Simulated assay, not measured.
Amino acid sequence: MKQHYDAIIVGGGVMGSSIAYQLSKRNMQVLIIEKDGMAKKASSAAAGMLGAQSELEGDHQLFPLAQQSRAMFPVVAEELKSLSGIDIELKQTGILKVAQTEDELTHLKSVAALQRSMGQEAEWLSAEKIRMKEPELSAAALGGFYIPNDGQVSAPLLSKAFAQSAAVLGTDMLEYTKVDSFIRKDNRIIGVKTTAGTYYAEEIVVAGGAWSSHILQKAGESLDVYPVKGECFAVQHDQQMISSSIFLTNGYIVPKSGGRLIIGATQKPGDFDQTVHLHGLSGLIANATNMIPALKEAKWENAWAGIRPQTGDDLPYIGRCPHVNGLSVAAGHFRNGILLSPITGILVADLLEGKPVDDTFAIDRKLLEEVNS
């Protein structure tokens, strides 16, 4: 393995792998350093919804970026399959955002109207029409809107496909390797010392998800990224009960192939513990079976927890550290990491080639100060 690279990426989740893929496409020599196995954290735990319209309302600052990234998936799916042989299971069967109270009904009607005024497809469905579309939904569904352009992928397969495609293009990878410290020369980060040796690069990108702030502290930087634990579970049913993903205020139900459904997710800020607790699952089970009573007959498969990276203002950090050269960050995508992975890879690759990134995501938009000042 080489010791000198054009770019080193610290973090081997979907974000780090997408960045490596884009940099490798541009003929850069790239090394990914991952403290665990590739895509073992939030990237493998996600349900894989591409919820540009269901997760983000039309006036959210991330909305335009999310739309752009969602539109990339058909091409990304083809590219990754041709390089890695992995089918990311892209399904463009839409997402149904459902109201369960009168207040939610009023709010969702206004959201659907706003999105239609922006040229987005958002079909409002009454309680009667929503059950015509998805007959297994109970009377708890008072109405909602159908978003045909939102979809889903397999989050673990997407992460694996980005990583393997990057490897095919020449990216090196070090798994189960921790970054002990950053090497600084004058006011520039030029390399990293790890448990597997020392490596140098022209550019270093921290894409460590919820652990990014801990990693950056080793370089004397502080970043407002914190963990939000999310518990999920999967069940199996003999029939395909729903065709579209169901997005609720208190969770989601995502149909996968072969009658499998992923149901989630709890939100526990500040928690790095990946233990699954009965209290969290009991609430998810109650919500899901209230919406789809037939789920009571489904067979249990498994449960897990993912640690999602959140920021104080719900916007990811994508940009260069303002106090030191050669160090950039792509972190804080929270529940939209899978959706935003294609566009983030491109933005960071552009950044490292000298192209500007929208100030909305620049990492100095909030307090980012040297710890050792």
Rank of each mutant, 00 (worst) to 15 (best):
D364C: 02
I262S: 03
S243C: 12
L50E: 11
S84Y: 00
H107Q: 13
I19Q: 07
I9C: 08
I130R: 07
K185L: 13
A45K: 11
A201H: 02
S117V: 06
G197M: 05
P309H: 10
P255C: 05
T171D: 08
E34V: 05
I246N: 10
L352G: 04
Y200E: 15
L50T: 02
A155D: 03
I285A: 12
Q22D: 05
D180E: 15
N336C: 07
Y200A: 09
I242F: 11
A234S: 14
A288Y: 06
L158S: 09
A39Y: 08
Q53N: 13
L248S: 06
K160D: 14
L137W: 00
G209A: 03
Q310Y: 15
K97N: 11
A210G: 05
A294S: 14
W300F: 15
W124Q: 14
G220Q: 01
M1A: 14
A265M: 10
A7P: 00
D359Q: 14
I130V: 13
E78C: 03
L347I: 07
V98I: 15
K218A: 10
A66E: 03
L347P: 02
D359H: 10
V371E: 13
I190K: 09
P342N: 05
E89Q: 15
T171V: 00
M291G: 02
L367E: 14
A122Y: 13
G259L: 11
V235A: 06
A234R: 12
I130C: 03
S18A: 15
D273N: 15
Y317H: 11
D36P: 02
K35M: 04
Q115M: 09
D36Q: 11
E221V: 11
Q152N: 08
T266K: 05
D359P: 14
T106E: 09
H279R: 12
A39H: 10
I204S: 04
S154K: 12
Q53G: 06
L23N: 02
V179H: 11
K185H: 14
L50N: 01
L315H: 00
L174F: 08
V254D: 09
V348Q: 06
E89W: 12
K355C: 01
N290W: 01
A7R: 01
Q274R: 15
R365C: 07
R70C: 02
E370F: 00
L114V: 04
G191C: 12
L216Y: 08
D103M: 04
L223F: 08
H107C: 09
T93M: 10
L62T: 07
I189H: 03
K109H: 14
L295S: 07
S117D: 03
D359W: 06
T275K: 13
Q68W: 10
